[in-house]
Write a protein that binds this DNA or RNA. Sequence first.
DNA 1: CTGTTAGCGCTTTCAC
DNA 2: GTGAAAGCGCTAACAG
Lengths: 408, 408
Amino acid sequence: MAVTLADVATRAGVSAATVSRVLSGNYPVAGATRTRVMRAVEELQYVVNGPASALAAATSDLVGVLVNDIADPFFGIIASAVQGEMGTGVQGGSGGQKLAVVCNTGGSTESELTYLTHLQRQRAAAVVLTGSGVEDEKHGAALATRLRRLAAGGTRIVLCGRPPLAPPGQKEGQESQEARERGQDHGQGQGQEQDPERAHGREAARTPPDEGEPAPAPGDGIVTIAFDNRGGSRRLTEHLLSLGHRSIGYVTGPADRTTTRDRLEGHRLALRAGAPELLAQAEQFTVHGGAYDRSSGYDGALELLRRVPDLTAVLAANDTVALGICAALRDQGLRIPEDVSVAGFDDLPFSADASPTLTTVRIPLHDAGARAGRLALGRETPPPGGVATVRTELMARGSTAPPSGRRA
Amino acid sequence: MAVTLADVATRAGVSAATVSRVLSGNYPVAGATRTRVMRAVEELQYVVNGPASALAAATSDLVGVLVNDIADPFFGIIASAVQGEMGTGVQGGSGGQKLAVVCNTGGSTESELTYLTHLQRQRAAAVVLTGSGVEDEKHGAALATRLRRLAAGGTRIVLCGRPPLAPPGQKEGQESQEARERGQDHGQGQGQEQDPERAHGREAARTPPDEGEPAPAPGDGIVTIAFDNRGGSRRLTEHLLSLGHRSIGYVTGPADRTTTRDRLEGHRLALRAGAPELLAQAEQFTVHGGAYDRSSGYDGALELLRRVPDLTAVLAANDTVALGICAALRDQGLRIPEDVSVAGFDDLPFSADASPTLTTVRIPLHDAGARAGRLALGRETPPPGGVATVRTELMARGSTAPPSGRRA
DNA sequence: CTGTTAGCGCTTTCAC
DNA sequence: GTGAAAGCGCTAACAG
């Protein structure tokens, strides 16, 4: 089990320090010596002892990636992109490569905290938290504290796909409340988001862009790549409205998630602007799904049909839920989109191949994940204010069409 | 960044050794002392330094999970199951929990080796290699050597979804060659696999089952959970044959993968047994896809249609490829299954919801992954011979039907 | 350019 | 039961 640095040193006839220098490569060493050392390494099949070097150097090459559900392609794609930036690709070298640790929280807040502890134990170089956060007052505070402590300890923190942390002193949710208000008067619903950044205008204005060196982000150094869920959802509902739908159901994601809230808000904003008369009965048209999964969509659609027999369109929390909705509708003998239109969210790979092809909102998951990865490595300058909002794009496809008045 | 064991010790008025004992819990400590220590830990927000303890204890709590493509649900499901066994769930404790590190190799052999090095550096407690291995003579040897060295160093190795390593002295591929021969006369094609274990009969016979203590597996201690790809594929083709198809195309996965080979073999076995006259033109009906992805299916189907205009059925390397095939077929104005039947493999979640629902072969990915996880932790006794083969099940659904003689 | 010298923070005998 | 002390294997100043 052994073979240590010292063994290599002896074998090569040099000191341990020299071997260390050769291996880490960040120090001048004579060519001949280097060769000799390398040969000894080869012969002895020496492999660095990670823990020992992490201890001595007080740094580790671990980067944690927290995901809510690794079996869900939404997270798989992001995780894959993050990892793609770690440089452990084909280049085989031994340079500054990091090891991305994908941690599956299952959406549980405790699990999230537990993993954070693990990563803190390992003195992780960075942590990327992906996807929807949980909207719990208590957890939010605990999480924020923990993250800031980690950041203070030198671990880079990147949030990807969730809103930025509320500022320290501030009450949970207050920030988003404000953004919500502003949301009402932004965008005219013509597909193109005018300025997603404005949703976090105040944050963004706080500090001027850092130029040059990949510096720690402003404020607490925690960087955020948010998704414009609200805007995308709004445009999606506008699309339905413009097709002539007036009986639009909505199957949401889990109640306490930021993503769920934002998407629902976007939907309501569109209604308010384009068909305010529908707002009164909004609750009746909304089913709160228990999870971002297929069965949640299946059951939700059934419930919706029960409540609103003349439904002409259903919006889903995401593409997977939409698939479940489609299955339920079909089982009820309804055709898509002739009888009922269906739309998802995320534009996962299977959505373009579904039958009919699924209307949805595209989030550039891969790009966002890659950027998060670069940020985590400090290879990219953080956006001004530490927050960037990623645009989303309406993908109008075959599963939505004008209502045909099947019954009524 | 600090707060060390010593700080806690001082605060609690005990020695560092005592704090260590309290924290690891595997040593008698007076109740009062324990309480005092715990309080100090709380107050100081102490978090163990992983590298330091790993160095001192010469063990780590990392478990590596190598996957070919984390964005593919096939791997996501397995990884999720493995991680589910690590016990980092809600139980929050600090006991023998392990941290599962999901590593995305992208199917690259170098990347696989690189990750193994990283993991070895970290002195990982176990490594789980999932999915199809690459059939390269050179790589196979390098990988086997590396794996055995890791195993010798105390790291548990589990292969999940790929065939067992060839015995040390033996030539690559020889083992499977033999199994292949035997495959020809096993099973009468009636859906139920008679005895998948027989495929590795020789291995299995080598050593009697270990009872009692989760002992290191027999032989080199490397445990394998293989999937019965060949049997499943065979039954799938039999299904098509029994529906009356005689013009069956096949879009394979990447050429050098064990999974690709096994599934193709199963297909050929079924043909040989049920419709030997088709064997002669088999090559013409086979398109070698470049990857396990959608576009590979799309392009493959187009090519197949070009070669064989009167095609009545297409088999896909997996479900994702099948989706691409469906898309291509539809784009050509063909109906599924009326004009052409399509079948996939794996039974990923979306397959049951596809339209039409996809005929495929189910692999119990979650169960297999969970078992691999338990094996990796030494919480389950290895199967006799160190190899278990997981059964696969034909899921006949809506995408396959008798040929209708659309044209001829 | 290379060797020497201290630790990094924790675990673990070995005494008390 | 608890403390003292000796490293685990490596890195990072310092000297040469």
